[in-house]
Design a binder for these strands. Structure first.
Lengths: 137, 137
DNA sequence: CTATTAGTCCATAAACTTAGTAGGCTTTTA
DNA sequence: TAAAAGCCTACTAAGTTTATGGACTAATAG
């Protein structure tokens, strides 16, 4: 399961995607519309900024906005930035790999099953982008 | 990510799958071979028994064993029994569903993306069985 | 130049989950 | 009846997640 933080991040990004090209959006606006605790959202958006997905403007008329067109950022990227691994176990994670202490990856049945699952998941998450998160209202 | 508990469960089941039809297997044997803390493993196997996947025999010559042929139990089932949801967010979980407080599932973009991911994952995990977890040695 | 707006940053608290342990109880077999 | 082996409950320790408070900095308007 994705953490709450990751879910909030995706919702916020979806909101910003819908507002893309319309200037900065207030944290408080995102917080209200998406029902995300404002201080928590603050740290999430900051992290996304530090990771190069968002940029911000301070002062009056300020806020957060997507740097690139929504279609340029995949869900896989977004999830990894704030939420960590997409794979179900560490030894098949591409970005957060950790070796199993006890099993040999060449022969481990679990490894194979999980690697296949990871590939199927990634196939979707690397095709979908922030543009898909905009609500169809 | 799957919890350690779930990973242990899958490894233990894989071990038992390899020994299917050969009588009960000691907790201590599984613990040693799969490097799983024995007391932790004990609770996991018990849970799997209570969920109808394993059965056990007490006393000398006792131990745990699979009730059904390894091919009869899918990985999806095994994961759900000890590890909970397979879906990435609660509102798309089939077995551990929880409604989103704030979004409408008919229009939520995140819902759609995650539902699709869940389907792709399930397609694999419902086809793979404990038989696949046996190490190819 | 100063008041206001709005993001930045750090520290910490509260809640929850996970991982693992302890130890006595029950059943089975020889 | 003793040894083997699982059963079961409770507990704890640690870590993670979620969330908040408050002071600071930057930008803008007038």
């Amino acid at each position: 399961m994705l953490s709450k933080k990751t879910q909030y991040a995706l919702k916020a990004l979806g909101y910003l995607a819908a507002k893309y090209g319309q200037g900065p959006v207030l944290i408080s606006e995102i917080s209200m519309k998406k029902k995300i605790p404002i201080k928590f959202l603050e740290t999430i958006l900051l992290e996304l900024k530090q990771n190069g997905v968002l940029d911000s403007k301070k002062g009056k008329g300020g806020g957060y906005f997507l740097i690139n067109h929504p279609k340029k950022t995949t869900l896989a990227r977004a999830i990894r930035l704030v939420g960590g691994p997409i794979a179900l176990i560490p030894c098949v994670s591409l970005n957060f790999y950790e070796k199993c202490q006890d099993c040999d990856e060449a022969t481990c049945g679990l490894y194979k099953a999980m690697a296949q699952t990871r590939d199927a998941t990634l196939k979707i998450l690397e095709k979908k982008t922030l543009a898909e998160l905009m609500d169809a209202e």
